[in-house]
Amino acid sequence: MTEEIKHEWPLFEVFVRAKRGLNHVHVGSLRAADHQMALHHARDLYTRRNEGVSIWVVRSDDVAASSPDEKEAFFSPSGDKVYRHPTYYSIPDSVPHI
């Protein structure tokens, strides 16, 4: 069992630019053996063959992240720019209620 875990593919974080003029946005993660495979898979999974979008993939363990404990020091200066916080993004009205 532990033997097999060693062979698992690493995790990649996926960022997609849905259309020109927008930033790349983090959409989720996936597993792949290498960057090339990660890009292929990201296209299949997160954009379903849609041409013309731009995709970034980053090895998850290469992402350095701030810790929530450092909130004060890092984020206070921009506390008024609420859109920087992921929790701000509300649910689109278009979510279907059938």
């Binding site: 997609v16 849905a18 259309k19 003029g21 927008l22 930033n23 946005v25 959409v27 379903r48 849609n50 859109y83 701000y88 993004y89 509300s90 689109p92 278009s94």
Partner: peptide, 20 residues
Amino acid sequence: MSFDAAYEALTDHDDDARWA
């Protein structure tokens, strides 16, 4: 395009066909 709706822009809800 509002910055506040980044996720909404990504899901591109006016472009339903892409999801089908």
